[in-house]
Nucleic acid binder design. Structure first.
Lengths: 106, 106
DNA sequence: GGGCTGTATCGTCATCTGGCGATATATGGT
DNA sequence: ACCATATATCGCCAGATGACGATACAGCCC
């Protein structure tokens, strides 16, 4: 099931989440799951599971988990739990809203 | 004269500069100098002088000066020295480039 | 030169951030 | 029940960040 459908988060929180290059990289790479996280034995429509992302980051499991948590809290990715896995996926609508906001606010 | 026409800065540096709410606010308010920094006895075409911005921020002189320096280093504002004043102005071209980049990178 | 104004820089400090390993929690398999 | 796997959380530490006051530098005016 989807974890904590986070209530519409403030753009400020999203911006803060994006102020870290690792998190920006994760978000960007999630645009192309098949390419950037190859070999997942679950359908990519579910998203990409945390372990795959950790592998691609070259950082410790706990560190990447924290980054994913921030992205999720900020509402930039969705998190769906499936058995013992958690699948993360870009929340395109939220990202689009943020971009619109940036056009205004910047 | 214009101070250190900063060589085209990395988008990453610009992003870092924008990761601070005070700096975002300054940049946003510079869209409307007449409105947000009223009573400047120099033409607004030159930009807004540091002192005016400090007044509007409610932070210490040194703190705001540092923020302006970051914005300038990141290439998001231009700085023009005129006598004992320094006038800051949005670099619209750079900001537009950054927004384009964000559309791609996000 | 001397004093005044506008801005930058320095030194310090408290807080935030991001990294890690260790541990906790939850699910699945035997 | 037990062990393995997947992920989250905790405690700690080092470095970055942002605030401040004090000081330095630069330009104007007398």
């Amino acid at each position: 099931m989807t974890i904590q459908p986070p209530p519409p988060k403030s753009h400020d929180e999203a911006f803060k989440a994006l102020s870290n290059p690792v998190r920006r990289k994760i978000l960007a790479e999630l645009k192309n799951p098949e390419l950037n996280f190859p070999g997942q034995d679950h359908p990519y429509e579910w998203g990409v599971c945390a372990g795959k992302i950790e592998g691609a980051c070259g950082l410790s499991q706990s560190t990447v988990s924290a980054h994913l948590s921030v992205l999720h809290q900020a509402g930039l990715v969705t998190a769906k739990k499936c058995g013992q896995w958690i699948f993360y996926k870009r929340d395109e609508a939220a990202i689009a809203r943020l971009l619109e906001f940036l056009q205004e606010a910047l």
